[in-house]
Nucleic acid binder design. Structure first.
Lengths: 211, 211
DNA sequence: TTGCCCATGTAATACGTTACATGATTTC
DNA sequence: GAAATCATGTAACGTATTACATGGGCAA
């Protein structure tokens, strides 16, 4: 098993192995907690996903049940093979840049709304960025010591960028209201713009956007 | 049908409706192309997901087949009900902040590697950010006019933040090598650090260590 | 002994990806 | 008419979410 040629998507496995590797043996419950706190910034998973995955990984020799405690609590520890797998994934796996973000989707669709509504939406997004950022910034891990420090810094940097974007966008939307008044952003009834794909140049360009 | 109380996750629906709304009637094929170009920054989907979804949405009255062209090509147009749905989703739906990013996961796990390897990984990430950013920045949409301009700016802002993070992280990793030499980041064989949850404090900490 | 939280799990469903299949049109 | 590309689709699989089920321990 565990043929080392890692499957298409195995990020959950990796996240679990990484946590076990970094923080030592833990139960499924502990790991589920960890997804809410330390690693929430990078990955997430519920216990319903974690328990079966641990069983599979145990069968594959990536983790081992170290001990069993009260009320069926099983403590898993990473095996040498598991530790090897995380490291080789880190070193060899080029992460997919594929984007799938509801926030970005709302940003994308913003021009469908009239100015007032668009402002409301951006304000809500801004509030959300701000709360998230505050949540990250107050984590003690920020100091040079904590394990998740790199991911945390990345999250904070991106949170700040998002916040700035919200401010800029708000400014622009408000500015637009000053003169055009009723001409916010492709206002109201949508203007059919010929066809799709026309806006992005021709077939040759396709590779340029390749992600 | 289409009970207006929108389901848990319906972002694909929304993305399709948004594209149809913004750019006018299009075929499934056109929409699949659009996911590669204009909206790739916010959402993505392959044709195998799009075709069935369009059929469902047509059954729900959110889109309608406007015309059928050569080789079975069906042109879908958004209906008023569909347009209403996108707008109310935009206005009412608080997007989930849930993170699931392989890039962030690699950042999180970076301390598992020794300094040399960590630097290699960050260099690769940096290259990736850089390419992605270049791809975004050269899009003509950046100008105030294009439909996806807000999402594009957000993507660019976050891309820059990621690039900066990579530079900072590289600097830190190289700096660490100067003195400690063999003491990069939790070097080599992992140190079991007691239990999980200990690093984050919080209300339920007591239970985390429980047996 | 009732009620709450801890801790683990299963089942059903929804969402996404990969692989495969098909035919129509254009290009050589 | 062979090959490439356009355009649509189905099937199988893997991953993620929601809802449900269970039982132990603890405190009021």
């Amino acid at each position: 098993m565990s043929s080392l040629g890692y499957a298409v998507r195995m990020s959950l496995k990796i996240a679990l192995l990484g946590l076990l590797d970094a923080k030592g043996p833990a139960s499924g419950y502990d790991l589920a907690k960890a997804f809410e706190s330390s690693i929430s910034n990078a990955w997430q998973a519920g216990h319903t996903q974690i328990y079966p995955e641990l069983v599979k990984m145990a069968a594959d020799g990536l983790v081992a049940v170290e001990s069993e405690g009260a009320r069926n609590r099983k403590i898993y520890a990473i095996t040498p093979e598991g530790a090897r797998l995380v490291r080789s994934w880190l070193i060899e796996h080029q992460p997919t840049a594929a984007m799938r973000s509801e926030v970005a989707l709302q940003a994308f669709l913003l021009p469908l709304l009239d100015r007032e509504d668009a402002i409301e939406v951006v304000l809500r997004l801004r509030r959300q960025f701000s709360e998230r950022l505050a949540g990250l910034e107050c984590r003690p891990v920020v100091k040079a010591s904590g394990f998740g420090r790199y991911a945390l810094r990345l999250g904070i940097a991106q949170g700040r960028a998002a916040l700035d974007w919200a401010d800029d966008t708000l400014a622009e939307l408000r500015e637009a209201g000053r003169d055009g008044e009723g001409s916010p952003a492709e206002t109201g009834p949508r203007p059919p713009e010929a066809g799709l794909g026309a806006s992005e140049a021709g077939p040759g360009t396709s590779a340029a956007e390749g992600e």
